[in-house]
Design a binder for these strands. Structure first.
Length: 285
DNA sequence: AGAACCACCTGGCAGC
DNA sequence: TGCTGCCAGGTGGTTC
């Protein structure tokens, strides 16, 4: 599910209601997520205060500080919860009810009696703990943020030099650029007018520039719409996103292109469906 | 070394 | 109605 715009929407929704609050109790109903929850997870988190909530790619990084040190000079223990939502994960507040509905695996009880709930039907998501999240192998391997200034055509050109992979797969390579998944890769390539099957290494600097610009534009539009909802995705208040209303190619196979009379087509690339307009995104051949 | 493939897991839907 | 097969927002590990 959640690509960068969805995760960032969740982060923005959680932050004002979470930061500065302590965890009164932790309820774990299932610990076998993509990775098993750390041992003693509940004890480690209970009593911690959420002091920062950041995002790297599709990961949420929740900085947790142990409550005020009881003993003078005692080292303040701090750690980071590394949260990934996988395909179907959600992180939201449940007011006036405890955790307990289907696929709600972890709940954090907050001082006001509200639960922050991690729900994930497919359990492709995970919650990990790290004392040094920046150097955690899952985090340190993430490429640059697509909305940062350093993400531009020159960067893509350099990263993609010699690459034979299709540009659409290359855009989804999180080690190069973070947070772009199947939906936004397809939408960005449509906006850039680039066929998804063109080998990344064949693209000209101008084409790489177009793609970088399109990626930023698509992500900004999606953020404004609160992300895309297919089935499961909801923000921290349990509400759906709206960007699916603005999809130009994704899940639109057989439908007319928004810009020309052609029909949107679907192909398989690396076992994922890719949608594109054969006329607006001409292949090289 | 790089690229393609598979597994992980559940639910929903189409087709028989 | 119920079974089977396929598909779905991701990505780390395996295989080629």
């Amino acid at each position: 599910m959640p690509e960068l715009p969805e995760v960032e929407t969740i982060r923005r929704g959680l932050s004002p209601r979470l930061l500065g609050k302590g965890v009164c109790a932790v309820v774990v109903r299932r610990d076998d997520l993509r990775y098993r929850l750390p041992p003693k997870f509940s004890q480690l988190i209970k009593g911690c205060v959420f002091s920062a909530l950041e995002r790297r790619g599709k990961y949420l990084l929740a900085r947790m500080e142990k409550g005020k040190g009881k003993k003078e000079g005692e080292k303040q223990k701090a750690m980071t919860m590394i949260i990934h939502l996988g395909m179907t994960g959600a992180l939201f507040f449940a007011s006036r009810r405890p955790i307990g509905e289907k696929h709600e695996h972890v709940g954090f009880l907050l001082p006001d009696g509200e639960y922050l709930i991690f729900r994930d039907p497919r359990r492709f998501g995970c919650i990990l703990l790290s004392d040094d999240a920046g150097n955690h192998p899952l985090i340190s391997a993430i490429g640059i943020e697509p909305l940062s200034a350093s993400f531009n055509g020159a960067y893509l050109c350099k990263q993609w030099r010699g690459k034979k992979t299709a540009v659409k797969s290359a855009l989804m390579d999180g080690g190069i650029v973070a947070g772009i998944g199947n939906i936004y890769a397809a939408e960005a390539l449509f906006l850039a007018g680039i066929h998804p099957a063109i080998r990344a290494g064949y693209l000209s600097p101008a084409q790489c520039g177009k793609i970088a610009k399109a990626v930023k534009a698509i992500l900004r539009m999606a953020l404004k719409a609160g992300g895309s909802t297919i089935r499961d995705y909801v923000n921290s208040d349990g509400e759906a996103g709206h960007f699916q209303m603005q999809w130009k190619v994704y899940e639109r196979a057989g439908m007319p292109c928004a810009k020309c009379p052609a029909q949107i087509e679907a192909i398989r690339q690396n076992n994922r469906t890719t949608f594109y307009c054969p006329r607006c995104q001409p292949s090289l051949y």
